[in-house]
Design a protein around this nucleic acid. Sequence first.
DNA 1: GAGGGGGGACGTACACCGTACGTACCCTTT
DNA 2: AAAGGGTACGTACGGTGTACGTCCCCCCTC
Lengths: 221, 221
Amino acid sequence: MTTEPLSRARIVTAAIDLIEREGADAVSMRRIAAELGVGVMSLYNHVPNKDALLNGVAETVLSEIEFTDDPDADWPDRVRTQARAFRQIAHHYPRCTMLVVSRQLSSAAGLLPVERALATLRSAGFDGPDAVRVVRLFIAFIVGSLLREVGVTPTFAPVHHRHLAGAEAVDPALFPEVSALAPLLGACDHEAEFEFGVELLIQAITVLQAHKEGTRRGSER
Amino acid sequence: MTTEPLSRARIVTAAIDLIEREGADAVSMRRIAAELGVGVMSLYNHVPNKDALLNGVAETVLSEIEFTDDPDADWPDRVRTQARAFRQIAHHYPRCTMLVVSRQLSSAAGLLPVERALATLRSAGFDGPDAVRVVRLFIAFIVGSLLREVGVTPTFAPVHHRHLAGAEAVDPALFPEVSALAPLLGACDHEAEFEFGVELLIQAITVLQAHKEGTRRGSER
DNA sequence: GAGGGGGGACGTACACCGTACGTACCCTTT
DNA sequence: AAAGGGTACGTACGGTGTACGTCCCCCCTC
């Protein structure tokens, strides 16, 4: 019976494990305490309240994404790599993803990805405002994609084809396109979809850059 | 004392009002009942449970976005209009936005926007798979943007410049780019940012379309 | 070794939550 | 008049976050 001394880190990882095992709704201070074989109120010696604990979960998950940035690669490759790194969250901690994304954390954990992204964009020749804009655009896309991937955001898939064989339950008269494309809407290769978006964004940004380069106006508007 | 008969609609709108007034955390069956001057359990005559009620909230909010689609406009204009329509949610019901976005609803309320989007893209000449891909891309971007706009998703703004004048609290040595661009990161013109993203996506899709048109391969892969 | 002090673990208690269940009322149909 | 169904409501149960007080152990000082 080692009885490791109970720390904020141990509590947070217990919470993460619990979320991944049983979902975010299963999280309660009592449940976590039981998981750790500990009295409920002992948790409060290391964590001010539940909200802070969940912030800790989000920070920990976010800080565990592996950025293997290669400064020698060209910027599209670096952007690709960083975008995929974010998507690891949805794979490693699918049921924590919502938490990570829905909680504005002011800690340094969330800053590092931004720092990396800004650095690569600046090195690619973007000025400050453009770099910030592009980063925001990417974050919006990634957040939206991850939410769809973990099944929380409306995939807007019409038919859950749950225990009903054909694709009905959606009136073809009211929604002709949706019902016609139901098979496509029902299935979603998240990876392919993500890659498609990333490539398209990169391509768009390339022409944006070229355009700026062409007009040679550093920063108006 | 008219004592209007209490209906699902009345309950849902009461919930929406409450959320907009005091935030999503304030929502409880007891609270809503009190708001309506009604016993708690009376609600259950019209709503099976709290979860369904929140789904109702999401559906109602989503169904209230105004689509003024002009079939004569060119497709970029129609896409612009539809994207902006979505963004109305964040304006009309900022504190409900998270709910709308985080709840996969299988009702028709969520299908109509997709139907419209698919229709305009098909009319623009996209085949089924491409139309679906593009719609998904736009939804991801819009969802991510709205979440940032309502302040729930990590804006990754480093300094909240809350009651501290200058931009400190972020170590310039560790985060040179972030601290250098702190003023830009701190302020965010959501509308401009959104429009920037929409324009960039439209532009990217245009070249995608042109490329497909050029190779003249209708539908492989 | 004796005394003391601080911090962590814990139990109890309170207010609140969602909702299952039983009851009382009214309104319509027979 | 009788019966039946839908609606409103009160009560009750198990669960939640957490404020507060207590206990105990370890370490430091004398």
